[in-house]
Design a protein around this nucleic acid. Structure first.
Lengths: 339, 339
DNA sequence: CTGTTAGCGCCTTCAG
DNA sequence: CTGAAGGCGCTAACAG
């Protein structure tokens, strides 16, 4: 069967069918308390009978409110971002907004294209993981009347809300856990220094060690954060540490495997903590103890903060929300002894 | 700085500024050929000066056309679906449509909620990866005037377009490759029979072997398609085959690792082909030769078929497009000898 | 080639 | 508590 093009019922049709005026129908739908219960009943019957579906777009034209919010990110296919998207979609759905997916594909022109699209659509706001560090374009969007919430990026508090995960805390938790499990000769297997997340996680690791005089902390930097480099590092290690914190799960998975090939047992000889709770962490042979980042919640919170700004306007105070990562215990570390 | 609420310029303002009528402005924007070059120039200047941005929503109210298309799927955080989303977003962007992300979260009520949202928004159409097998709700959507393209699911051709990947061909290619590489004693490590994809891939594998009398094909079914089960299977294997086709990359990764622990070398002793080209395939120690599915293209094609239906209407012929998977050569198989 | 006019579907004063 | 009328921003006839 092909598409039937029955012109959908309009509010007028409902009014006629119910024997009332359009404004009464509108009231029944939007402010039921102002309408006599019986007439309301009649109207609702008519709505059902005609399969009437209101048209928020038309309403928005009148009221000035739209009901779509933008989600601008570099690449939905990347699991970190797709998890943000999931959380954002959840929240948007719960609040009756629709989420417009804007995948900039790492291309600034395209990001800009989406920005103007959002202006055209009169989106109520946008959650964005911006591409460059340059805030000019973001500011312009905001001046255009589109409130923004930044995700996973810093943002001067006065300019708007932002959400992110605390990587320093993550590093601290990871290493603290190794200490709790009895490890004292520690190694951080890190990614490039330039990556903010890596630097922060290392800083957190140092904080944890500082509180425990008796422990040592080394660091080795992997060229790329992949399983292969993790294995490589495991092979080259001279004196084995008794605890390793890898700043990403791929490195951790590779490291475990490389150690295995040398006959080193995880967690008996060396304990390992990863970071990110990627799929791989629970699929791998020795499942990884790792740091979970509440990414979905991050997306959800971003949307909710945005809606608060949109709906509260005057009373809204910008907020920089930082989420706490937490530890997922699996096989690559031993049970912690009570401190 | 806070949101400045300057009421955006309307088409009237532009008309006034340029000293012409609104319809002329509209024409300049939509059918430039019907307008004198000089007046057009004046209008464009005014547009720029006032920072005028057209309001497609209002236009749509008038024309009846909307410019948003829905993307309904079970879970964006799942990499298969997020890749579809990426392709769909690409195509939608290229054609000037906006993509509304509808993550049903595996909940039928929610999927239904999104369906009615799409009706409300008068979406021009939707790409959907439906939850259940029941086509009733889909049909209703279509009757409501929202054309559908199904992704990764079967659909009677007369009811609309669909896109999917040919799993039989995928299985055939995988095993053919093993044969080309000299393997003769083959094993399929599969998931549950009930899963259509698994059944299809096995069927493809059998087709490949049938053409080569001299080869044997066994099958073993893993309870779950994870790295851990792959390892398990590698450990339990009695007589080693010389070629293994795992119907998913997790299984393949686990298998390789399990074989490694037994001292069996990949690809020297046993060659392995995976399926899916997940991240893990290229990150793992011995990188996996695997079957790539053109998932992004699937998403892109879905949107384009949808738009064809929307724009062509009468001449549009429903199409069931099946994509061909292909082989990605990596380290877990030896170079094929010319056939 | 350009201007005038009448809605698209809805909400919202303002009267009754 | 209900109805009539105007307009949100834009396009599409139809005149000029």
């Amino acid at each position: 069967m092909d598409t039937i093009s029955v012109r959908p019922a309009r509010i007028q049709d409902v009014a006629a069918a119910a024997g009332v005026s359009v404004s009464t129908v509108s009231n029944v739908l939007n402010r039921p308390e102002r309408v006599n219960a019986l007439t309301a009943e009649r109207v609702r019957d008519a709505v059902a009978a005609l399969d009437y579906v209101p048209h928020p777009g038309a309403a928005g034209l009148r009221t000035g409110h739209s009901s779509s919010i933008g989600l601008v990110l570099p690449d939905v296919a990347n699991s970190f971002y797709s998890r943000i998207a999931r959380g954002a979609a959840d929240a948007a759905y719960d609040h009756g907004y629709s989420l417009v997916l804007c995948d900039s594909g790492d291309a600034p022109e395209r990001e800009q294209g989406y920005f103007t699209m959002l202006v055209e659509q009169r989106a109520v706001g946008a959650v964005v993981v911006p591409l460059g560090a340059d805030p000019t374009r973001l500011t312009r969007l905001r001046e255009r009347g589109i409130p923004l919430v930044l995700a996973d990026r810093a943002m001067p508090a006065q300019d708007g809300c932002s959400v992110s995960v605390d990587d320093i805390a993550g590093g601290r938790i990871a290493v603290q856990h190794l200490l709790d499990c009895g490890a004292r000769d520690l190694l951080v297997v890190n990614g490039e220094r330039g990556i903010r997340q890596c630097a922060d996680r290392y800083q957190g690791a140092r904080q944890a060690v500082r509180s425990r005089r008796a422990a040592r902390l080394g660091q080795v930097v992997a060229e790329e954060m992949t399983v292969a480099y993790g294995m490589e590092i495991a092979r080259k290690l001279d004196d084995l540490p008794d605890g390793v914190f890898c700043t990403n799960d791929f490195l951790a998975a590779g490291l475990c495997r490389g150690l295995g090939e040398r006959g080193v047992k995880v967690p008996e000889d060396v304990q390992v903590v990863g970071y990110g709770d990627l799929d791989i962490a629970s699929f791998v042979g020795t499942t990884l103890t790792t740091i979970r980042q509440p990414v979905e919640e991050l997306g959800r919170a971003a949307v909710e903060m945005l809606l608060d700004e949109v709906e509260a306007r005057a009373e809204h105070a910008h907020e920089t929300r930082v989420f706490a990562p937490d530890l997922v215990l699996r096989e690559s570390t031993r049970a912690p002894s009570a401190p």
